[in-house]
Design a protein around this nucleic acid. Sequence first.
DNA 1: GCTCAATGGTCTCATTTATATACCAGTCCT
DNA 2: AGGACTGGTATATAAATGAGACCATTGAGC
Lengths: 149, 149
Amino acid sequence: MSRLLSGNPLPRPEAAPASEERSAESALQRWQKLGFDPSRCPVRDVFDHVGNKWTALILMTLAAGPQRFSALHRAIPDISKRMLTQSLRDLERDGLIHRHVHPTKPPSVDYRLAPLGLSIIGPLDTLARWAEVNHPEIRDARARFDAQD
Amino acid sequence: MSRLLSGNPLPRPEAAPASEERSAESALQRWQKLGFDPSRCPVRDVFDHVGNKWTALILMTLAAGPQRFSALHRAIPDISKRMLTQSLRDLERDGLIHRHVHPTKPPSVDYRLAPLGLSIIGPLDTLARWAEVNHPEIRDARARFDAQD
DNA sequence: GCTCAATGGTCTCATTTATATACCAGTCCT
DNA sequence: AGGACTGGTATATAAATGAGACCATTGAGC
């Protein structure tokens, strides 16, 4: 238990810029080294809720402005209504979006980013750009792996 | 269908820097507007594979340097071995990590970031920092939602 | 007035996916 | 010899997801 994560003289893969690597460690690994309760780890929580496919897609779609339920469904056709409803509830519960009901005769509903939701668009978009840029390489790697192994 | 996402004079939530907001739209919404096949959308693909809880956690743990299977399991105790095995295979298949077998008498295995994997640590860490900073606010929102509704 | 479609969902059921648990062969420590 | 660690696999069960039917209300077209 004492040598669990203490002195770890493993060979580094490469001499990566120390500052970069250290900053990448810190956020998550402070938790790990200190043995904090994993169930309260923010990283787990956020990646589980906000980082999942549908949730991220919804948030990024809402970045263009408020959208009604069915507009969202049209923008993301491959989500089931069931999942769309549930994801929207989750996002609302977490304070990332607001559900706004217009009291028109046939009441209409729209969803819009709350300030908290707006603040995650940047990080999310950074990942999305990475995805766009590196997707070909991932597909290649996948093809190679499937072919030879 | 024509007015679906065309002219959208909706009230912006706030006067965010136009460049920021436009850039947030562009990545995903080009796809949506052009009606591309969702199954080939890089954003879906990456958020599904790389953005899920375990995968992101593994990548960030490996950012500190190569780790053996059991070290990873100790660092992330709440993942099942089965899921850890499977997540590692997926990451290897996508070319984000390498599996390295040392031909010692009892052979030992370690996993390390491939260049592609190293390149995603930055974006991932950005999200992780957001998580750390905003987790309290999310928890508050959740508590409020659960209490009154 | 009748039919057809859209709205914003909910409900049920089948399939997919994840977790928990047990197990394996080989090797080290005591 | 007993127990623990290595890197997993196999099986059984629980949870998440998807497909599709349904609902009350409204508006448009015929």
